[in-house]
Amino acid sequence: MERAELVELLTPEGLTLIDSVSETDATANVVGVVSRLRADGHSPSLVAGVLTQARLRRKAVPKFGEFASRMLFTEAGLEQATRLRVAALHAGRFGAAGLSRVADLGCGIGGDAMAMAAMDLDVTAVDADEVTATVASYNLAPFPTAEVRHARAEDVDTSAFDGLYFDPARRTSGHTNTTRLTRPEDYSPSLDVVFHRAETMPVGVKLGPGFDRSLIPADCEAQWVSVDGQVVELGLWFGALARPGVRRSALVIDVDGTHELAAAQDSDDVDVQPLGEYLYEPDGAVIRARLIGDVARSLNAGMLSPGIAYLTGNEHVHTPFASAFRVLERFPLDERTLKRELAQREIGTLEVKKRGADIDPAVFRKKMALRGSQSATLFLTRVDNKHAALLCERV
């Protein structure tokens, strides 16, 4: 979205049109909606902008729920925005630490700032991109304790705040078709700036879950967060925002609620043990936090193979930190053998997972020429350092 398009959208006419189109299935009937709006005399650029916002509002529902219907978005801003459930937990940290004046530096479209303002924190949301800052202003307008500034995070005087939250730009500039930046020194602001601020005041930082662990400062709490099985972020917390004695944590959010595994350090792995009746796949946040050993001990399970993030045991123990599978058969990792065995079992729906095997699951599944009414999960991996295929069913 360009500046001129946003200016046209932020008019009574534009905002009324967005609300009206959001109530229709513009995706299924784009031609009809365009024809109707053009016949009513609206400009082509306004119609295009309205349809884009209607599409983005529907796309934003998993992240923002009912709030999506009254927000504005950019493509890149929505992709990078914090889910509201996670943002509420971020805001809760500041509240629990007794911090009430927060600067959200790199606020994007305002997701985290919305959660802070909803908890009555005085939040100043800052973004270096003019269009993004304007979108954030619209989204934060209902919150009296929030304000938005168009500025670089590096240029903000932070002396008026008692806590800072950074979400460094980790993609190239723009509102669509951005690409991921791989070097932390290219982030905006750079991590040198962020970590320097963290030396003197409470700071929270949102980073990608694949961030290089060797660059994590020793004096902070590192928390990996997964939502419905997808690892969505790494949060670094400094000063009063970090919990005493916690340096590594995995936060798992699912339909049953919020579950956390926390520790003072990476956990030691357990020993390898023979393949049992059950295979456990730890949640991605647990793997990233390197707390697999703690989960294994809670399950009375062992490693399936050295360096492979699968666990095995002979009893089923429910845990939010790992998915459980019942092992049905073990086969050699041979395509012809597996194709024949799957056909004999009439397996037409196959979930393929792999660790420790140089195989593309999508290509492999296509080669199996699946037919039948049964379903299963196939693990292509190593068992005590030997390649194997494990046919399983979810518990």
Results as ranks from 00 to 15, higher is better:
L279R: 07
R101Q: 05
R57K: 12
V126H: 06
E351P: 04
R394H: 10
G284H: 07
E341S: 12
L164H: 10
L299Q: 14
Q230C: 05
A262R: 08
R36T: 04
T74V: 00
T312K: 09
L181S: 01
L140S: 11
V231E: 08
R345Y: 06
R355T: 07
T200S: 14
A218R: 14
V131A: 02
V194W: 12
Q344V: 11
A76L: 00
C107Y: 04
V131M: 11
L17C: 06
I18W: 07
E2L: 00
V102F: 02
D294Y: 04
L251C: 00
A388H: 08
H316S: 14
F94P: 06
Q265Y: 07
A357R: 05
H175D: 12
L333Q: 03
G98Y: 08
S267I: 01
A343H: 09
S22K: 06
T179C: 01
P332G: 14
P142L: 11
L234K: 04
E154H: 01
V7T: 09
F67Q: 12
P332R: 14
E79Q: 03
T16K: 05
E13R: 03
L333T: 03
V317A: 13
R340F: 02
P189Y: 07
K353W: 11
R171I: 05
A117P: 12
P274I: 15
D19H: 08
T132V: 15
T158N: 06
I109W: 02
A60G: 03
Q80N: 05
E341N: 04
A125H: 12
F64D: 02
R355E: 08
L51P: 00
R297D: 00
T319M: 15
A48N: 01
T124C: 05
